[in-house]
Design a protein around this nucleic acid. Structure first.
Lengths: 207, 207
DNA sequence: AGTTTAACTAGACAGTGTCAAGTTTGTTGG
DNA sequence: CCAACAAACTTGACACTGTCTAGTTAAACT
């Protein structure tokens, strides 16, 4: 029966949650060896199953990656919603600073998720799942709604387009995170100074 | 020597500029099938040589990709320098607008270059050639210098950090371009409106 | 001329994603 | 309880990948 190894005992066939275990193991693999280092076969070995076992839970490799991305979006969204619920105010200097820092923090501390969430890998591919599309757009919509509410409350200029503003704001944070993760032009020690500059630009604009 | 002509037959061995032809063919391949669709073997077939011929001109695949990226940086830098030489003024609304539009235009019209120039692919890999490092940093330095000169001329605030500002500005344009190329959150028809918003934010900050 | 050397080819190997066909197991209806 | 079924999993196979090694060809240099 369970001559099997580590944390969860599984009978050689049909152990309960291979799907989730594959997702976890995949994240670990990417973290250690990079996205290019993730192969379906290594993944299978790490999970202790045969090389094609994963195909009973995911249509193909892209589908697996999409599932990881979806997990990433859910975590990311939760972070954002918690911040909003905590009453964090984007229109204030401290609030904006915390929002920015949180964005970059998530990206740089979870590059394995971030790469998949916002890498062309998935978005141009046909495997852009409906559920992934949903959660990713919901995440963005949250940020547009936040801007609209600030407008309604009169905390920021009423004559700016919430959508455009949200897009540009997202672009800035996305670009900063990408440059950071990829190690381009930016040293990670500059993160605070950059977030501050970004905040200053934004505040100068919205008030 | 010049029995050669680039499109048609070449003497079976030793045709003059396989290196350059490989680079050109690679760009075409990526444009048609995406980065994932580029393989050393397909490339060899398209160039009409054997599958390992490329290895006499490039250490490995990454080295080939780095060379393409370097070409991209040179084109990009030339664009930027021409704009500066033309007297384009970042501190003015029209000038800033043109700078931004040119950035996004280059990125979206040459995604095969842009992906390689700013994809983690190369930057984290060991094949970050010295020459690539040089041209890519030079490109960024140009943009910092431009800001400094604006400060010297008194065209913008003197109390802002040129490096930080350049980094954030680059982040915004990079993020916008990436989202655009990858088809995330942004429709390409919004490019002008977004550039304008970005310009407004910047102008509100630098004056 | 002969020799060196650069450009190119052919063969081979380990690794990849994934399909098709078979095997094991848990579930369910009689 | 057992037979039938479906879901989870394995094995084998295929076409493809990057790249190493050892050879072949032709141009360049002495």
């Amino acid at each position: 029966m369970n001559i099997e190894n580590n944390k969860t005992k599984k009978s050689s066939y049909h152990h309960g949650d291979l799907r989730q275990q594959l997702l976890n193991e995949a994240v670990l693999l990417i973290r250690e060896e990079g996205l290019a280092g993730l192969s379906m076969r290594k993944l299978a070995i790490n999970a202790g199953v045969s090389r094609t076992a994963a195909y009973h839970h995911f249509k193909d490799k892209d589908d697996l990656l999409s599932a990881i991305a979806a997990e990433g979006f859910e975590r990311f969204q939760k972070l954002h919603r918690d911040a909003v619920d905590r009453g964090l105010d984007l229109a204030s200097r401290e609030g904006a600073m915390e929002f920015n820092r949180a964005y970059v923090k998530f990206a740089t501390e979870n590059p394995e998720y971030y790469d998949l969430m916002f890498g062309g890998q998935i978005w141009k591919s046909a495997s852009l799942t409906e559920s992934l599309k949903k959660v990713s757009f919901a995440t963005f919509r949250d940020s547009v709604v936040m801007v609209k509410e600030l407008q309604d409350r009169g905390a920021i200029r009423s004559d700016l387009d919430p959508l455009r503003f949200a897009q540009v704001r997202w672009s800035t944070m996305h670009g900063m995170s990408r440059l950071m993760i990829d190690g381009i032009y930016i040293d990670s020690s500059a993160v605070d100074a950059m977030c501050e500059t970004a905040v200053d630009m934004m505040l100068a604009y919205i008030h």
